[in-house]
Every structure is written in structure tokens, then in C-alpha cells.
Simulated scan of single mutants.
Amino acid sequence: MQSWLLWLTIAAVLGIAELLTATLDLLLLAVAALAAAAIAALGLSVGLQLLAFAVTAAAMITLVRPVARRNLNSHPQLRTGVAALIGREAVVLSPVGREPGRVRIGGEEWSARSYDPDVLIPTGTTVDVFAIEGATALVHPREDPWPN
């Protein structure tokens, strides 16, 4: 059997095993086996084929694997429900302090308390939603922008 055909078979077996396990590591080794198959197709020695496999495998695992894993595991965080309200802007409808008042968050009225119980927030103030506890929004007045 020609050595390039053997390397191609190894690459195919690793590729099929990757499809069954979805680990990404076997795919990188399959690519290294393809590199060795290319060296074998050129008619170079078995030692150079093994060297090509080892160097390519090492490069794929040390350089490609971390980047691929980071991109495969990272996904945009989609906040839904009450978690989507945190960080939103609201307008105070009735005074909010230690005792609950009312705020409008994106068209909906919510009961609200001041995040800092010592702060009384008057009607009409724009606030940020810091947290949601049950059906009550914890809000804090927006800070004034820095002067120019």
C-alpha cells in the first residue's frame, strides 16, 4: 500500500471519529494526517512524513485549537424576561425611596424602590434599573454627565 493512501485513510478515520465525538481535536489531527499524505504524495521519506504530521499537529493544537474553542464557546448573551430590564432607563411616575413608588420602563408600569434606601427620587426623574426583586424594580437616579 502506498504511504499517501495510508495517511489519507488515517485522515478519513480521524474525520469520521470527529463527527462522532465533536471534540475538534480529532479534526486537527486529521488535518495533520492530510499534511503527511501530501508529503508522501511528493515521494518523500517516511521520516519526513512523520515530521510533517508531528509539526502540523503541534501547530494546529497550539495555534488553531485555542482560537477555535474560544469562538465555538462564545455566543452573544441574550437576556430575556426581567433580566432584560436591568440596565434600562425608566421614568419615575410617583416618588421612589425606601417605600415603593412607580416607574415606567419601556411603556410598562412597575413598582419600584430606590436602590439606595436613603435616596428619595422625585417624580419625572430619569433613573436606571439596577436590579429586579420579584415584581419591584430597584432604581437609581442617572448621574449627571461630566462637564466639558
Rank of each mutant, 00 (worst) to 15 (best):
A12C: 10
L14E: 02
L14N: 01
G15W: 01
I16Y: 02
I16H: 01
E18I: 01
E18S: 01
E18T: 00
L19Q: 07
L19W: 05
L19Y: 01
L19D: 01
L19K: 00
T21I: 14
T21S: 12
T21Y: 00
A22G: 04
L24S: 08
L24V: 13
D25G: 04
L27R: 07
L28C: 05
A30G: 11
A30L: 03
A30S: 15
V31D: 02
A32I: 03
A33M: 08
A33Q: 05
L34D: 00
L34I: 06
L34E: 00
A35G: 08
A35R: 00
A38R: 07
A38E: 05
A38M: 09
A38S: 12
A40W: 05
A41V: 05
A41M: 13
A41I: 03
L44Y: 12
L44E: 14
V46C: 05
G47M: 09
G47A: 14
G47W: 15
Q49S: 09
A52Q: 06
F53N: 02
F53E: 01
V55C: 14
V55G: 08
V55W: 06
T56I: 11
T56V: 13
T56L: 12
A57W: 05
A57Q: 05
A57E: 06
A58P: 02
A58F: 13
A59R: 00
A59E: 03
M60C: 14
T62F: 13
V64S: 09
R65P: 00
R65S: 02
V67N: 03
L72E: 11
L72W: 12
L72V: 12
N73T: 14
S74L: 10
P76K: 12
P76I: 11
Q77T: 14
Q77Y: 06
G81I: 06
V82H: 11
V82C: 00
V82N: 15
V82K: 13
A83M: 11
A83T: 11
A84I: 05
A84M: 03
L85H: 01
L85R: 02
L85Y: 00
I86Q: 00
I86S: 07
I86E: 04
I86H: 04
I86A: 10
G87P: 01
G87I: 07
R88N: 06
R88H: 10
R88S: 15
E89V: 09
S94T: 15
S94P: 03
P95V: 10
P95K: 12
P95M: 08
P95E: 15
G97I: 08
G97Y: 14
G97F: 09
R98I: 11
P100F: 11
P100Q: 15
G101R: 08
R102N: 10
R102L: 15
V103C: 09
R104V: 15
I105T: 06
G107H: 02
E108N: 09
E109Y: 02
W110R: 08
S111R: 14
S111V: 03
A112V: 06
R113T: 12
S114P: 00
Y115D: 14
D116P: 01
D118Y: 01
I121D: 04
I121E: 04
T123V: 14
T126D: 11
T126L: 13
T126G: 03
V127R: 05
V127L: 09
V129G: 04
V129D: 04
A131D: 15
I132E: 13
E133Y: 00
A135W: 00
A135T: 12
